[in-house]
Computed example of a mutant assay.
Amino acid sequence: MEVREQSRMVELWLTQEEKNDPVFREGLKPIYQKYREQNYLVAVFLPGEGDLYQQTRDLLIYNRRKLAEEQVRSGLS
């Protein structure tokens, strides 16, 4: 859990085990309540199922290709 005072945000980063544990997830509700009462945004980040390396690589390749296409279209190549 990371509390960002300046932006009034609380980040909760769960592990795969925590994500799949309904008792643990239910136990987070008092934390949500406490920070919402103080006008904080509570964000919960859950782990995904895919290969992070492969998905990041694919995203970077896609973004680079789109940028190259835009440069060619605008004549900045």
Rank of each mutant, 00 (worst) to 15 (best):
M1R: 00
M1W: 11
E2L: 02
V3R: 04
V3M: 01
R4P: 12
R4T: 02
R4I: 01
E5K: 08
E5M: 01
Q6P: 05
Q6M: 08
Q6T: 10
Q6G: 09
M9K: 12
V10M: 00
V10N: 02
V10L: 01
E11H: 07
E11P: 01
L12G: 05
L12V: 12
L12T: 03
L12H: 03
L12I: 15
W13I: 14
W13T: 12
W13H: 13
W13Y: 14
T15R: 00
Q16N: 13
Q16H: 14
Q16I: 06
Q16M: 08
E17N: 09
E17G: 07
E18S: 02
E18Q: 15
K19H: 07
N20K: 12
D21W: 00
P22Q: 05
P22S: 04
V23W: 08
V23T: 13
V23Y: 08
F24H: 04
F24A: 03
F24Q: 05
E26C: 05
E26G: 05
E26H: 07
E26A: 07
G27T: 03
G27Y: 04
L28C: 07
K29E: 15
P30L: 00
P30D: 05
I31D: 05
I31F: 10
Y32W: 11
Y32K: 14
Y32C: 08
Y32L: 13
Q33V: 09
Q33N: 10
Q33P: 04
K34Q: 11
Y35S: 04
Y35D: 01
R36F: 08
R36K: 13
E37C: 04
Q38P: 05
Q38Y: 06
Q38D: 09
Q38C: 02
Y40K: 06
Y40L: 04
Y40D: 00
L41K: 13
L41P: 02
V42W: 00
V42C: 00
V42G: 02
A43G: 07
A43R: 13
V44G: 05
V44M: 06
F45S: 09
F45M: 10
F45L: 08
L46N: 14
L46Q: 14
P47E: 02
P47F: 00
P47H: 02
P47W: 03
P47K: 01
G48E: 14
G48L: 01
D51M: 02
Y53K: 08
Q54R: 10
Q54T: 11
Q54L: 09
Q54V: 05
Q55E: 13
Q55H: 05
Q55A: 07
Q55R: 11
R57T: 10
D58T: 07
L59G: 12
L59I: 11
L60P: 01
L60F: 04
L60V: 10
I61T: 09
Y62Q: 13
N63M: 15
N63A: 15
R64A: 10
R64D: 12
R64N: 11
R65H: 06
R65W: 04
R65K: 08
K66F: 09
K66L: 12
K66Y: 06
A68D: 14
A68E: 14
A68C: 07
E69N: 09
E69R: 11
E70M: 09
Q71K: 15
V72E: 13
V72R: 12
V72I: 13
V72F: 07
R73E: 13
R73T: 07
S74P: 08
S74T: 15
S74N: 15
S74D: 15
G75D: 06
G75I: 03
G75Q: 03
G75T: 05
L76K: 14
L76S: 13
S77Q: 14
S77M: 13
S77F: 08
